[in-house]
Every structure is written in C-alpha cells, then in structure tokens.
C-alpha cells in the first residue's frame, strides 16, 4: 500500500460544472473537457489552453481570463450546458 496525497487545489480543480461556452483542444480531440489533467485513456496530457466560444479569445465576454477553473457558476457570463 503506497501513501499518496494531493494538495487540495489539485483535487478540487474540475468539480464545478463548466460553462457551455468553454472550449479546449482536448474537447475536440477526445470529445471531452481536457483542462490539463491526464487523459486516463492514453496518458496524454492536455495543454490547459482554453478559450470562449463567444469571444473566440482567452478572455471571456467579461474580459476576464477563460479557464476551466474560472468558467463555473457564479461568473456573470456563465452559461449552463451539457459539457
């Protein structure tokens, strides 16, 4: 039995639902949100680069940065979606 511990920030990263407008390369390649964690299928690692489908930019409609951890409920421009 091996001892493992991740910092809280590490484990918390993708719990909240993501905005429907969030986009990343991983979503196109694997069909799933891939905000920078290991892809369990292949061990491939994403790059964490996200953009907003509304602005086509790394800044959202509110001019704040678009990221998996930030594009969650509570943000003014958040749109619920199926992702």
């Amino acid at each position: 039995m091996v001892y493992r511990r991740d910092s809280e920030e590490q484990t918390r990263s993708s719990v909240a639902p993501a905005c429907a407008l969030l986009r990343s390369k991983g979503m196109y390649v694997t069909g799933r949100l891939n905000p920078g964690e290991d892809d369990p299928l292949t061990g491939e690692v994403g790059d964490g680069h996200c953009w907003c489908n509304k602005t086509q930019n790394v800044l959202g409609p509110d001019d704040a940065l678009v990221e998996r951890g930030r594009c969650v409920p509570g943000r003014d421009c958040y749109q619920p979606g199926v992702v």
Binding site: M1, V2, Y3, R4, R5, D6, S7, E9, Q10
Partner: peptide, 23 residues
Amino acid sequence: GKPLSNVQLVNEPGDDEDEEAFE
C-alpha cells in the same frame, strides 16, 4: 498561484501523525 503538491511514499504516516511533517 497557490502551489500544487503531490506526494507518493512507500511508507505511510501513523494515524495521528501530521501528514506534511511525516512527508
């Protein structure tokens, strides 16, 4: 940003041992 840490060890801490101190 807040540092992310990630530890893996063969030995485990005792039940009431502070994890970070043990690590």
